[in-house]
């Protein structure tokens, strides 16, 4: 990592530090938020701007280093953008379903229109 001009090294440095700091803050949120439903929001920091800025840093670094456009990081960005909401939705729904079955007071009760007990295996 030696022959990178300064005008490229500075943004790469800033993006790397910003992205990893956001990922760390998100994971700290996993540790110190109180309930599961509050913690669900914490990793989103890393999976949106966090990984986004690290991918941008990597794109910039390799494009300048190889003196051609290296764009395959875009692939991972697309994949992360599509997959993170899906996993979070599935997980939150599963957690809600489990809490509702246990009758927890922290979650809204089952609505009459929600699927009744027939889904219980």
């Amino acid at each position: 990592m030696n022959d990178l001009p300064l005008w490229a090294a500075i943004p790469v440095t800033l993006l790397l530090l910003f992205g990893s700091a956001l990922a760390l803050i998100g994971s700290i949120g996993l540790v110190n938020l109180r309930s599961f439903y509050a913690r669900v929001h914490a990793p989103t920091l890393g999976t949106t701007l966090g990984i986004g800025s690290i991918l941008l840093a990597s794109m910039l670094y390799f494009s300048v280093l190889r003196t051609r456009f290296v764009l395959h990081e875009l692939l991972m960005a697309v994949f992360i953008v599509l997959s993170t909401p899906v996993t979070l939705m599935l997980l939150t729904r599963a957690a809600l379903y489990r809490d509702q079955r246990e009758g927890s007071s922290e979650v809204p009760a089952v609505l009459p229109s929600d699927p009744p007990e027939k889904e219980v295996p």
Partner: peptide, 23 residues
């Protein structure tokens, strides 16, 4: 620029390892 970048990479690695430890 080399020292700048290697410092940033080192710090970023430390921060990410801490994040993994929290998780």
């Amino acid at each position: 620029s080399a020292t700048l970048l290697s410092g940033a990479v080192l710090i970023a690695q430390i921060l990410l390892v801490l994040a993994m430890a929290c998780a």
